[in-house]
Design a protein around this nucleic acid. Structure first.
Length: 845
RNA sequence: GCUCACGUAGCCCAACGGCAGAGGCAGGGCACUUAAAAUGCCUUCAGUGUGGGUUCGAUUCCCACCGUGAGCACCA
């Protein structure tokens, strides 16, 4: 039988399933553990795409390799199954989201299984099942007990198109929902919040503990936005109280020429004088109407109005006018700033626009700064015109003035974060219900643990109610309940948790997925955590990874997890793009409708000229590659190999349908190395003999190279080395059986079905999944002789063979004796000779 | 606007600062075949985006610019 993936792949998938080949014991026992995790998918209606396949293939290769290296490998898969798309499909199709979700997860499972991944399916979890979200609710109660969950009237990101609010992290800089591009507006609503800000410091600090890509750490640091500075109080000129500002530059305190409060600032009304009342009110209203997007777009012109009031400078006692302007953000710092136009570009622009004075109080070291400035000088330097502080360097100034203000009770050192609390409720049906009730007075009362799960009631209609309440308000029976202790009437919360909730802890549930007494057994947690390698797309750099880290730290504080961080090593696979074809009208054509004409690419039908470009895969661009089609044509093993062979795992790279031919041929050639004809006859060249020295060395190099590449996730070069080995063996008159066995084991993690089948044909009695990974004799890697290039002035002019241990004198003597080199040197005396052992000789004349 | 990553044959991609090519696709030739496909063998193809610098020697390190991609964007 020739190599036929459509026969052997289902056969081995069934074998693995029947024999529970990849079920993992409850704890690793005395073997070293390796927890390798994929970011579990949201099972969309579109099915698996090749981008999923890339990450899952990479982790599967590593999982299989680690098993062969003797590790206890935990490699689970599950479904992030709550979410908006299923709910929208439910409205559209009139089918319950649970049914749609089941349909989608069934399809995903089928597609994933068809790729032959070695997941332990007995640990599968689904975040939308009550036996899972029961524990999501349980964790919420722990958050609530610790004061980390609270309800507040907050200005939220309301998305009218979706009919729900969104977290800050879900809104793009343009003021749209990141997923769909629908516009988002500001609205004041009572919402559940999680106090992630109280973990801000640790979320920054503990990034030091993990082995993550630097860009991801950077994005998290920037999102958290830690900055050190001071709070300084400017007393109101009239009446009690003060404006408190946050600044990172207390050393510019003497350069303050005005203060600004945000239009949302609580003191604004008190500050506004009757004479200014009308213009301030007009300004505030104008600002409120502006979306975030407009506010940002208008950022070039610094608008604002004078309040009519002044505050007292905490050091000089001078009167400082107070303005309100929308360039100051109400929700950051204290919502008020001291403006130093000479040393802050934004303040400078505002001062220019409104003819406010500019006072220079810092000059660059070794240089004077003279007015008028054409822009702010924002660097550190030396203080000038700052009374007793004059002459101090900025750093020293900051320390001293902060201490002085503290002593005077007018300020103190302060760290500020850009991170805001996490908006944790959504006006949706298809999410986790909150485990609490709201009594007649409007107070939220948590339910006891034994009341969990609070199950989602069945609904037929998933749109918001006519009076604008969330879909759950339609479940009138479910809604009416009582306070558990007092039996007083109460209502359930009609909001649900956001999609991120379930994915915040799924990696822990995988450890003990069937446990019905607790989320997971702490003993099991200790044995497996942390996740050793977590692979997924970089799009989750801030959202999911920040939220999960936050929950994990809360669980750590509760003493139910043993590690500070959940994911020790993170790897982001690159995006896979695909060529798309567009005619002059901008219409897209599928690759199959394109041919090469005399003047370039054109459509086969009608011969319209088209241009091709490489873009993100998308339905509308007709360039989506489906794993089902690829598998049907070339099999899962070829698909796996090609996904890895395209290029480095972290690179963005284009899918080329023709590229898969190469790896498919590799599998066929590998097969034919061992078997000929239509029966299972061994090829004549395969003999049970010991390999010759040179063949042994080649194999040792391959084993060593592939092993090294696997360590560093360099799958593309590992596969290239296996191809080299096939090319080499193909030429060889004799193919020792032991060499062929080693070859098969090396291929096994990459193309497991192929490898199992060949292994069995070569006499294997059972799966090779736990066969020891091939080793080699290091002596075989040592070359006794090497060919050295001889350079003259850096250019290669010849090459000589020398012994590996030859010293400089020997090598140079041999080089200078080379007739060709003698001719090139033409009697010139070498000025200098550079000798790099085993690398090269460079003669400089 | 700011930050980061990446630019190597027609294409995808390799090369501890040391011979630019490991591998694959596509192209060409030959063999097998009545023919084609498949297969096997052989083979063409770049001097590394541009301009400087460091070095005996640069695809690799540094600077500037161009191009592509990603992230951030009044955070005081």
């Amino acid at each position: 039988m020739p190599y036929d993936p459509s026969v052997i792949e289902p056969k081995w998938q069934k074998f693995w399933e029947d024999h529970r080949t990849f079920e993992t014991p409850r704890t690793p026992g005395d073997r070293p553990k390796y927890y390798i995790l994929d970011m579990f998918p949201y099972p969309s209606g579109a099915g698996l795409h090749v981008g999923h396949g890339e990450g899952y293939t990479a982790t599967d290769i590593l999982a299989r390799w680690k098993r062969m290296c003797g590790y206890a490998v935990l490699h689970p898969m599950g479904w992030d199954a709550f979410g908006l798309p299923a709910e929208r499909a439910a409205v559209r199709e009139g089918i319950h989201p649970a049914i749609i979700t089941k349909r989608n997860t069934d399809n995903f499972r089928r597609q994933i299984k068809r790729l032959g991944f070695s997941y332990d399916w007995s640990r599968e979890v689904d975040t939308s099942h009550a036996d899972y979200y029961r524990w999501t609710q349980w964790i919420f109660l722990r958050l609530h007990e610790r004061g980390l969950a609270y309800r507040a009237d907050v200005a939220v990101n309301w998305c009218p198109a979706l009919g729900t609010v969104l977290a800050n992290e879900e809104v793009s800089p343009e003021g749209t929902y990141k997923e769909t591009g629908d516009p988002v507006e500001r609205r004041l609503m009572k919402q559940w919040m999680l106090r992630i800000t109280s973990y801000a410091e640790r979320l920054v600090e503990d990034l030091e503990l993990v082995d993550w890509p630097e860009p991801v750490k950077k994005m998290q640091r920037e999102w958290i936005g830690r900055s050190e500075g001071a709070h300084i109080r400017f007393a109101l000129e009239k009446g009690e109280g003060a404006i408190e500002v946050f600044t990172t530059r207390p050393d510019t305190l003497l350069g303050v020429t005005y203060c600004v409060v945000a239009p949302e600032h609580p003191l604004l009304a008190r500050l506004t004088t009757p004479a200014q009342s009308a213009s301030v009110q007009r300004y505030v209203e104008k600002t409120q109407r502006k979306s975030d997007r407009d506010r940002r777009a208008d950022s070039k012109e610094k608008s604002g109005v004078f309040t009519g009031s002044s505050v007292i400078h905490p050091l000089t006692g001078a009167k400082i006018p107070v303005w309100t302007a929308d360039y100051v953000i109400g929700s950051y710092g204290t919502g008020a700033v001291m403006a130093v136009p000479a040393h802050d570009q934004r303040d400078f622009e505002f001062a220019q626009a409104h003819s406010l004075p500019v006072v220079i109080v810092v000059r660059p070291e070794g240089r004077e700064l003279s007015p008028p400035l054409d822009r702010a000088f924002e660097d550190d330097g030396v203080a000038v015109a700052s009374g007793a502080y004059s002459g101090l360097k900025s750093e020293e100034f900051r320390r001293r003035v902060t201490a002085d203000l503290t002593a005077a009770g007018r300020g103190e050192k302060k760290v500020s974060y850009a991170l805001r609390d996490w908006l944790f409720s959504r006006q949706r049906y298809w999410g986790e219900p909150f485990p609490l009730v709201i009594d007649a007075s409007g107070e939220a009362i948590p339910l006891p643990d034994d009341a969990l799960p609070v199950e989602l009631p069945h609904l037929e209609e998933f749109r918001p109610t006519d009076d604008g309440r969330p879909p759950l308000a339609r479940a009138t029976e479910w809604l009416r309940t009582e306070v558990p202790k007092t039996k007083a009437p109460a209502e359930r919360e009609t909001n649900t948790m956001p999609q991120w909730a379930g994915s915040c802890w799924y990696y822990l549930r995988f450890l003990d997925p069937k446990n019905d007494r607790m989320p997971f057994d702490p003993a099991v947690e200790k044995a497996w955590m942390p996740v050793d390698l977590y692979v997924g797309g970089v799009e989750h750099a801030v959202l999911h990874l920040l939220y999960a880290r936050f929950w994990h730290k809360v669980l750590y504080d509760l003493g139910i997890v043993s590690t500070k961080e959940p994911f020790q090593r993170l790897f982001n696979q690159g995006m896979i793009l695909a060529p798309s074809y567009q005619d002059a009208q901008g219409r897209y054509w599928h690759e199959s409708a394109i041919e090469t004409g005399p003047d370039g690419l054109r459509t086969t039908d009608g011969h319209l000229p088209v241009k091709s470009q490489v873009e993100k895969m998308s339905k509308s661009m007709l360039n989506v590659v489906s794993p089902d089609d690829v598998i049907a044509a070339h099999g899962a093993d070829a698909m796996r190999l090609y996904e890895m062979f395209m290029g480095p795992l972290d690179a963005t790279k284009p899918w080329q349908t023709s590229g898969i031919e190469g790896v498919y041929r590799f599998l066929q050639r590998g097969w034919r190395l061992m078997f000929t004809g239509d029966d299972d006859r061994l090829a004549e060249e395969v003999k049970d003999v010991a390999p010759e020295a040179s063949a042994r060395r080649f194999l040792a190099r391959t084993v060593s190279g592939v092993t090294e590449d696997l360590k560093h996730l360099r799958f593309n070069t590992a596969i290239a080395k296996l191809m080299e080995l096939v090319n080499e063996l193909n030429q060889a008159p004799v193919r020792p059986l032991s060499t062929m066995r080693t070859f098969v084991l090396l291929v096994a993690p990459f193309a497991p079905h192929w490898a199992e089948e060949v292994w069995a044909k070569l006499g294997g009695k059972t799966t090779l999944a736990y066969e020891p990974w091939p080793t080699f004799d290091p002596a075989d890697l040592v070359e006794t002789e090497v060919e050295l290039p001889i350079c003259v002035n850096g250019k290669v002019k010849g090459r000589i063979m020398v012994g590996k241990t030859a010293d400089e004198a020997q090598v140079v003597a041999k080089a200078l004796a080379d007739p060709n080199l003698l001719r090139i040197l033409a009697g010139a005396t070498p000025k200098k000779v550079i000798f790099v052992p085993n690398k090269m000789v460079n003669i400089v004349v």
